[in-house]
């Protein structure tokens, strides 16, 4: 089979770009929900903030894992 197109360099960068889409949307959703709920009911802001951080941590973990694995196996998956 003849090669029509070829990607050189680290494909891990492309992989991380794809992997960052999900957490990006997720973190956006978490904070948009927090802002909306605070705008509707300002007195609830302190009550909901802990859950914002739990959600943020769990989602942001995915993005950070993406960075880490991109570096760890950047060279091995040829």
């Amino acid at each position: 089979m003849s090669i029509l197109a070829e990607v050189t360099g680290s494909t891990a960068a492309i992989g991380y770009g794809l992997a960052a889409i999900g957490p990006g949307i997720g973190v956006g959703l978490v904070f948009s929900a927090y802002i909306q709920s605070t705008a509707r009911q300002p007195e609830s802001s302190r009550m909901t903030l802990p859950y914002v951080w739990i959600g943020f941590a769990v989602i942001e973990a995915l993005a950070l894992l993406g960075i880490a694995f991109g570096f760890i196996w950047a060279g091995t998956a040829a």
Binding site: R46, M47, L49, P50, Y51, W53, I54, F56, A57, V58, A61, L64, L65
Partner: peptide, 17 residues
């Protein structure tokens, strides 16, 4: 380490007061 980080965030920031 990520799991540990999440636990710390939940314990320090995610506990409703």
């Amino acid at each position: 380490g990520m799991a540990g980080g999440i636990i710390l965030v939940v314990r320090r920031l995610g506990t409703p007061t």
